[in-house]
Design a protein around this nucleic acid. Structure first.
Lengths: 190, 190
DNA sequence: ACGAAATCCTAGCACCGCTAGACATCTGAC
DNA sequence: GTCAGATGTCTAGCGGTGCTAGGATTTCGT
């Protein structure tokens, strides 16, 4: 029986190897460079092995996204941890969010912009997705209450603003010299 | 000499035909369905003629984007036209922006989300791009002034919020039942 | 009417995500 | 220890992508 366990363990390790390789390749050269051939070459296996672990390329991206979500959630919680004032806490979360997106562009894309089949709002979504959303929503809700806004709309609006800044900035749609004024406006408004 | 003019005219017509076909195909089946082969078949020419008009597929998308920008600018200006109050005018522009994105998803993608090589902030950008940005920026700036915010950061933040709402909603990241609260929050905050 | 020039198409390149089927390896009962 | 069968992996290939070289055809100016 132990032999089956060893095999399962080796499979799990290789699966993690695939996810790590995909992530590294994406961070280094962008998701366009992450092809199944290059990925296979990188893990020193042939292409079909990938499909014995994942249903397709999308599933690999999704796996990276889930991993990234967990990290994002941790970062956001840490940012809000020791800030008492609700509005200041939410501002800190926002800064952490933008920092994360800037530091891990490919990871951010995997989570939020690539057309993935990740179920987001539904209850059967992976736990890290819920955690990441909660890490935004909870500080946002607290901030909304002191401002007297409807928490639901306020939270999603604030998140949209953050996400919009990330994606527009990435394509050169926003002026870099307005980075700071933009964040200032965010903290002033939310 | 007139014969050259006729040829030039026919070329221009065919170029417009390509752009129109690309746009229709994208609206009908999404940009993934817009391949050079299908496009060529649709205009009843062979593939290489596309490359005698455009440097590549990106350039075709960009041409559609420029066309869409002009329409977006017109819509936004019309929305702001006869609203006196600056904040209400900007709210009307925001609603028009979201309506445009919902009514023309493929067009919106061509303009704002597809990785295009369109120069946006630079002075040598096509006129419609400037027009569309101005149609957002001017009402935003007026609204910022009555709120006492820095116009630059405020404008880009508001635009980011709109863009974020569009893109997140498209991938099912936002709850449809919060559509209205989100817009309410926008008009309350900006 | 005829050589030159412009125009267009056929055929093909290298790449993509993905898969069928052959091949090798390992397992476990005898 | 042997050997059928399960398991794992690979080679080769399918239909698709964006893009292009080179030849055929039509049109033009003389």
């Amino acid at each position: 029986m132990a032999i089956k366990e060893r095999r399962a363990r080796e499979r799990a390790e290789r699966e993690q190897l695939i996810v790590r390789a995909a992530r590294e390749l994406a961070e280094a050269e962008g998701w366009d460079a992450v092809t199944t051939r290059r990925l296979a070459e990188r893990i020193e296996y042939s292409q079909p092995v990938l499909y014995s672990h994942f249903s397709g390329k999308d599933a690999i991206v999704a796996a990276v996204a889930v991993e990234g979500c967990a990290e994002l959630a941790t970062l956001l919680r840490a940012a809000a941890a020791d800030v008492a004032d609700p509005r200041e806490a939410f501002a800190a979360v926002a800064r952490a969010y933008l920092d994360f997106a800037e530091a891990n562009p490919a990871l951010y894309d995997a989570i939020f912009t690539l057309p993935s089949t990740l179920p987001f709002g539904t209850p059967d979504a992976p736990a890290p997705l819920h955690a990441a959303f909660a890490a935004i929503a909870e500080p946002a809700t607290r901030s909304a209450k002191v401002s007297g806004h409807d928490p639901g709309g306020y939270t999603e609006l604030a998140w949209s603003a953050l996400h919009g800044m990330v994606t527009l900035a990435r394509n050169g749609r926003l002026r870099p010299d307005l980075d700071q004024p933009r964040i200032d406006a965010f903290t002033a408004v939310f």
